[in-house]
Design a protein around this nucleic acid. Structure first.
Length: 276
DNA sequence: AGGCAGGCTTTTA
DNA sequence: TAAAAGCCTGCC
């Protein structure tokens, strides 16, 4: 089917934004996306024009939510005043097209535990290795092989040797601990989904190996808490350099996490020049 | 009590 | 060799 939208949506921006680690680029501006039991091939024809290899029904039931199409990202960007916050304005202009996907909380929890103290290519390798060893080997509509993201029980069934092959390093015990918590139901959306942000962050932070940064990422990307604001090395530098008086969280509530994502993308893409 | 230094696996540039 | 979407432990 074809999809035409007027709001922000840029596949390349999202693919490189560091929130999803399993999108596979299959052509220029075309990706294969694995989400739960569904696989989508989607390509961007032009700004606002997309081709998807699914029926309208699946789009309405699955992918519209995945891409968070009910949220008005253009409207969120318009909260920025160009004159009073030129840095954030420049970041949002360059990151236009980013959306916060509604991804699976368990997959996000594992992915961001793995992410700590590593760069994105390394994260992707570990996640994919984990999937190929513990996930189910399946075929998509094109007959191409893919692996599902493993359930917590599947992760717990891995041998020591298989865990080692995932190159998780010292994070392996964190992943196994999270899997045990998930099996107990301690990570279920039913139990955590209705908690207020601060309480959710507190619960996530109780997981072994999950500190403030990773907890914020899980809240933002796994529980769609758009006000959660992960502070990593990039954002830390940006806050020091651009907001010596502190970031105006009150001004940007309840979308601080979206703005954080623009800044993260901007800082990572910026080489050394600062064109703003 | 709360803050801080050092250590941790591996990969990337 | 330093840095990478950090966190844990032990010490003060």
């Amino acid at each position: 089917m074809r999809l035409s939208i007027t709001d922000d949506l840029d596949l390349k921006q999202i693919a490189e934004s560091g929130q999803c680690f399993r999108w596979e680029q299959i052509e220029d501006n075309g990706y294969r996306i694995i989400h739960g039991g569904y696989v989508l091939y989607i390509s961007q024809r032009s700004p606002g024009e997309f081709q998807l290899d699914c029926e309208e029904e699946e789009f309405r039931n699955v992918w519209a939510a995945y891409f968070d199409l009910d949220t008005d990202y253009r409207g969120i960007r318009q909260m920025i005043d160009r004159d009073s916050d030129p840095f954030l304005y420049a970041a949002a202009e360059q990151g236009k097209g980013i959306r916060i996907l509604r991804q699976d909380p368990w997959e996000i929890t594992v992915s961001f535990i793995i992410s700590q103290n590593r760069n994105i290519p390394a994260i992707k390798r570990s996640v994919e290795r984990l999937c190929s060893l513990a996930g189910k080997r399946l075929a998509d509509k094109r007959g191409e092989e893919y692996f599902s993201f493993p359930a917590p029980e599947d992760v717990l069934r891995l041998s020591k040797e298989e865990i080692a092959q995932c190159r998780l390093g010292y994070r392996d015990k964190y992943v196994l601990s999270a899997a045990k918590a998930a099996v107990c139901g301690d990570l279920s959306p039913e139990r955590l989904g209705s908690l207020p942000d601060d309480e959710l962050l507190r619960r996530l932070g109780m997981l072994y190996g999950v500190g403030p940064k990773v907890a914020s990422c899980i809240a933002l990307f796994g529980f769609h808490r758009l006000d959660a604001f992960p502070v990593d090395t990039w954002i830390r530098k940006a806050l020091v350099n651009e907001y010596p008086g502190g970031f105006p969280f009150d001004r940007y509530r309840p979308y601080n996490g979206v703005f954080q994502q623009y800044m993260f993308s901007f800082c990572r893409n910026a080489s050394s020049a600062r064109p703003y």
